[in-house]
Computed example of a mutant assay.
Amino acid sequence: MTRLLGFDYGLNKIGVAVGQTLTRSASPLTILRARHGKPDWPSLAALIEEWQPEAFVVGLPFNMDDSEVDWSPRVHRFGRQLEGRFRRPVHLVDERLTTIEARRLLREGHAGNARSPVGVDALAAALILETWLSEQDAV
């Protein structure tokens, strides 16, 4: 079994989820604050120490025309920094529509509620991680 951490990177907040390859499932974990796109590295390091993931999955935002969004270079940089700081592989996955799906799930009561402490960003991170896990079946 491989444990992974998934991330929904944003300039102000970073949703975090934990998942594993045995069940190919993920659960929302928390939301970390970011300042102007700079992650809270000490809090992130504490999560990595606690969960001991073997790899990271980071959502990469795309436009509907399959082009990357204008702030995608920041997501690539976050991925490179994760890999460099924590010496674990980083996998990027298309995160298109995950935040919309997370909001829908919360609104319909399928994943807590809109006031849940987990929040939209952590649920989006779980969806991103599950997307990557499901793609591993196809390989």
Rank of each mutant, 00 (worst) to 15 (best):
G37Y: 01
A17M: 12
M64K: 07
G59I: 03
Q81K: 04
S67L: 04
R3F: 06
T99A: 11
P53Q: 07
I48V: 14
R3E: 08
D40F: 02
F56P: 12
P28T: 07
R74D: 05
R80F: 04
A55W: 12
I128T: 10
E50V: 06
R104E: 10
R80M: 04
M1L: 10
R33D: 08
W71I: 13
D94P: 09
L82Y: 00
P73M: 00
S25C: 08
E101Y: 05
Q20F: 06
G19L: 09
L11Q: 15
G112L: 13
H91T: 11
D121N: 02
R35A: 10
E68P: 05
I128Y: 11
L4C: 11
Q20L: 04
D121I: 00
A124Y: 03
V18N: 02
D121Y: 00
H110L: 14
L106M: 15
D66N: 15
Q52D: 13
R3T: 15
R107T: 14
V93M: 04
Q52E: 14
P42T: 10
N12V: 04
R104Q: 09
R74S: 03
A45M: 04
L82T: 00
L129G: 14
L29N: 03
M64I: 11
T131H: 15
R24V: 11
E68N: 03
P61L: 02
R77A: 02
E68S: 03
L105T: 13
A125R: 12
T21W: 05
L11P: 06
E95I: 01
G10D: 11
V75L: 01
E54V: 08
A111T: 06
P53T: 04
R115L: 12
Q81F: 00
R85G: 02
V118P: 00
L123P: 07
I128P: 08
D121Q: 01
D65N: 01
I48G: 08
E95H: 02
P73W: 00
S43E: 13
